[in-house]
């Protein structure tokens, strides 16, 4: 376990394509549901407890070394919106590129070979964490944090929010983040014995619907 490796992986500057995505905040801003730090916090908390938990579970399971292709199927089953499946695979491809350059391993090479069009991003993130010598709980932390960090940054750009307020939102979510990562890692610890069915499958229907609509916008700042 290297705490420093976790910082590298979870850094928003890790070049894996996340900067071009808003995690659904662009659509939420347009709908008027995210408009200030308080509504951003509500959005992030909701996202964390739904798709954030699901993604963290997949990442933690991948970091245990469990069959990545089975986890990729489990991710598909947990991602009903076609637009979000496309985004997850594209970001998975981009994460794979960065991970293979930073922490090369046979496991990553195998997954890249088996899924040339990209595995779901949380699965690749978990495999990258394993390659970096990180534990499943740490992979869950990275996935969960990324799930709220991206939207918070995007909200600053979209709403000209005070960046200190947006960062304070993330700080206030720290307890929730720890809790979600723990739950995700606990579920992941059971996957080897019980299969992928034990992984969290929480979803957010409004995020799914908004993502489909957002994908059809002719003018937008973010890719998703």
């Amino acid at each position: 376990m290297s705490r420093a490796a976790l910082l590298v992986l979870a850094d928003g500057r890790f070049p894996a394509g996340g900067h071009a995505h808003s995690g659904g905040v662009e659509a939420a801003v347009a709908a008027g549901t995210v408009r200030d730090p308080a509504s951003l916090e509500a959005f992030c908390r909701g996202r964390l407890h739904t798709t954030g938990l699901t993604g963290a579970g997949l990442a933690a399971a991948a970091a245990t070394g469990y069959d990545a292709l089975a986890l990729d199927e489990a991710a598909d089953a947990r991602t009903p919106a076609p637009a979000l499946r496309r985004v997850a695979r594209r970001l998975g491809r981009q994460m794979m590129r960065a991970a293979r350059a930073t922490w090369p391993s046979d496991g990553l090479d195998r997954l890249a070979h088996d899924r040339p069009q990209g595995a779901h991003q949380p699965v690749v993130l978990g495999a990258a964490a394993r390659s970096a010598g990180l534990a499943p709980l740490e992979a869950a932390h990275a996935a969960a944090y990324e799930g709220v960090g991206g939207p918070a940054t995007a909200a600053v750009r979209l709403l000209s929010l005070d960046p200190f307020h947006a960062t304070a939102v993330l700080a206030r979510l720290a307890g929730d983040l720890d809790h979600i990562a723990d739950r995700a890692a606990s579920a992941a610890a059971r996957v080897a014995a019980e299969g992928t069915g034990v992984l969290p499958a929480a979803s957010a229907p409004l995020l799914d619907l908004a993502a489909e609509q957002h994908a059809a916008w002719p003018v937008r700042l973010f890719a998703s």
Partner: peptide, 21 residues
């Protein structure tokens, strides 16, 4: 076309993954 999330220089310099794709 590549979408750059409000940061054109990031997409060509700091995180080139989408453009490489």
């Amino acid at each position: 076309a590549v979408e750059t999330g409000a940061c054109p220089h990031t997409a060509i310099r700091d995180d080139i993954s989408a453009n490489l794709e």
